Every structure is written in structure tokens, then in C-alpha cells.
Simulated assay, not measured.
Amino acid sequence: MNRLLVFPLVFLVVLSAFGQKRHLQNALDRAETEGFSGVILLAENGKVLFEKAMGMRNFEEGIPLQPNDVFEMASVSKQFTAMMIMMCKEKGLLDFDDPIEKYIRVPYPNITIRHLLTHTSGLPDYQAIMDEHWDKSKAAGNPEILEYLRRYAPPKLFEPGDNYEYSNTGYVILASIVEEVTDRDFVELSKEWIFDPVGMENTAIRSLEKKAQVPNFAVGYLKDENGNYVNANRFRSSDYTLWLGKRKGPGRVSSTAEDLLKWDQALYTEKLVSNETLEQAFSPFELNDGAKSTYGFGWDLDPNSPYGKMVMHTGDNPGYKTIIVRFIEENKTIILLNNNYHPDQMRLVEAATLALGKW
């Protein structure tokens, strides 16, 4: 290459990187101006490149968010449930292709553990059945959910393996299978097997009472009819978090951005499971017709990522939006936790992805 061209090319690369970072900062400034409340973290090789907290931990009391505040993870929890199943498999307690009736009695034959992990089981939505029939003055857990599935037996959506359809029911059953094969409580075992070994000191599956005892727990907020942010628990649509408050598997993990980065980095090691087992979590499921879904074991897969193999998961609970994005080949990570259900979440993720690609 002509040496006279080297400096202009280097300058253009630096300028492009600066431009993408400036684009991210502009997106964050705009989101903050428009009321976004949350924490964003960007990392490479486990090193934090950028971290920022915006908005309020508690709007009523005017307490600003801090980077290490605790958020409800919602469905980001599913990757931990999937890991518990993978650890059970490596301990010889189960196999991925075992039929679920080997462990749990439900009126749906020919479903395997792998179908549950990949959302290809065809199971109906447990929440609809519980909403119709459950006494909402009481909190239901997995035993009650399974009992109602047996009692009312709503029809399956499709034959196992025919399609992909996201299923919270499947992840309730997965947690129950863990309890069945270990004879241990799923909440305690998750702490013993995952959170403690990884060093996730601020992470747990917490009851409402336990959450209230965490001083830096970020309260979830929604807008009322006047456009003011109020505690999400005041909305009738949020009531299911109370009367389904004991469920295990599909949600209920609460954590911080920095703890999620520890989890992310543990997945580059064999601290929890072997690379061979973990690779199955990041691989698509082949449907009965030969087509491949874009979901592994607790992870969404993006085969068209511009930065190599990418896995991710979102979470959605009253007042909360969460997401973790992992560019596995480059060991780059985006974590975004939001506690006022703001519409800017994905725009911030896109800006962060562009900036991370140029960092």
C-alpha cells in the first residue's frame, strides 16, 4: 500500500469509531431527555467499556438510579433455568431427549425436555388457565400450575417439534423437572449451582417480600392516564405478578448489569458445564419439517449478526424491559436494564451495537 495513504485510512477508521460512539451518546442523551430510566453496560473481554445509569430508582422519592442497582430480569431468567437443566444433564440426572412424563405428569404426550428448552413443545399458556380459574387471593406456584393444567387440560397448540412458539409453560415444567430429579428447591439450588459460583452477589430468585428488603432495588414504573410514572404494581394488568408470585422457571430472577456481565464471562469457561453442552444452548433446533428455529436453550439466536455469532434474550415484566446481547466470537456484550418500560430500549441497543463494533 502507498505509505501516503496509510494516515488518511487510519484517520478515517478513528473518525468512524468516534462517530459511532458519538451516535451512542446522542441516543443516550435523547433517551434521557425523553425520560428513559435504566442502566446500560458495554463490555469487551469482560472489561467494562462504557456504563451509565439514567433516571430514577424510585420516582416518588426522587432517588436516582446507580449502575449497580437491582432490576427484575423477567424472561432473561430463562437462560438460568436452561443452565440448571444442562447441569442436571451433566450430572447424569436426565437427558435432553427424555419425555417429560418420565418426571412430571401432564396430559401432553410426546414432549421432550429439548422441546421445552427450545419452545417447540406446543404446550398451551398456563397463565390463561390460571387467570380463568385460580383464586387470586392466593399465590400460585409450580405445583398449582401443573395441577390446573392437568385438571383443565387446554388443547395443545401443535404437535411437538412442528413449530416454534414461545412458551412460559415449558419453563415452569423445566424448573419442576429440576426439583424432581434433585429433590431440592429450585430457588436454593440456583443460588448454590450458579449465582454463588459465578460471584453474582446481587442476584437471586426473590419473593415480593425479599425484593422489598433490597435497598437498591429499582422499582418498575408505568405511565398512568395522565402521563405520570406510577408504581407498576398499581395497575390491574400487573396483578398476575402477585397471584402467580411463587412460580419458578420462566422469570423472577432479579440482578444487576455487573452481575450479568459476570454470568456472560462464565459462559466462556467450563465452570458450569462443558463447552460441548453449552454449544447446544447456542444452536438452533431442527423442526420436524427440517427447518431450523432461531432459539436454542434459553437463548435467541441471530444468524445474520454483522459481528459474528450472536445470542441474546429480552425480558418484559410490568414496568421492566431487560436485554442481554452477546457477540460470542468477539467476546463483546451489551446489557440494558430499564425500569419504566420506555420505548427507546431497542434504539439504544442498536446504537450500542454499532458503537461496540467500532470500539
Rank of each mutant, 00 (worst) to 15 (best):
G141E: 06
Q345V: 15
L337H: 03
A53G: 08
E286I: 14
F327H: 09
T241V: 14
R151D: 12
K191W: 10
S167W: 05
G298Q: 06
S77E: 08
G249S: 01
L354W: 14
D259C: 03
S190C: 13
L356I: 06
S190F: 11
E61H: 10
K248S: 01
T294F: 13
A351R: 09
V230Q: 03
D98H: 13
D300Y: 14
G35H: 09
T322N: 10
L301S: 02
L336C: 05
V325I: 13
L117G: 06
D316I: 11
L261W: 11
L41K: 04
E32G: 14
N45T: 07
W134V: 08
A17K: 06
D131T: 02
V48F: 11
K211T: 02
I63A: 01
P250W: 04
E179L: 12
I145K: 04
T322F: 12
T81D: 09
G19M: 14
Q20V: 05
D131F: 02
I145F: 08
A352I: 10
P160M: 11
F158W: 14
R105H: 15
S176Q: 10
I205K: 05
P343R: 00
L348G: 03
K102A: 12
F7Q: 08
K136G: 02
F195C: 08
P303N: 00
T120V: 08
L93W: 10
I335T: 05
I324Q: 13
T182I: 11
N45L: 06
Y221M: 06
L244H: 01
P160Q: 05
L244Q: 05
M312F: 12
N228K: 15
G170K: 06
G227T: 02
K262H: 00
R151F: 11
D162T: 15
E72T: 12
V198F: 08
I328L: 14
D98P: 10
G357K: 08
K191A: 14
R184M: 15
H342Y: 09
P318N: 01
N110S: 13
S16W: 15
K156G: 14
W263S: 03
K262A: 00
G38H: 07
S190K: 07
E270V: 01
I145P: 04
L116H: 08
L301R: 09
K136I: 04
L301F: 11
R252V: 00
W243K: 00
F158D: 09
I63W: 04
A27Y: 08
T294E: 08
M310P: 04
L93C: 07
S176H: 12
N304P: 07
Q127H: 15
W263D: 00
L267I: 03
S77M: 10
Y240W: 09
R247C: 01
V311H: 09
T169P: 15
N202A: 11
D95G: 13
K47C: 01
L272I: 05
I85P: 08
V6E: 14
D98G: 08
V273I: 15
T353I: 14
Q345E: 03
L272Y: 12
P143G: 00
T269Q: 06
A232E: 06
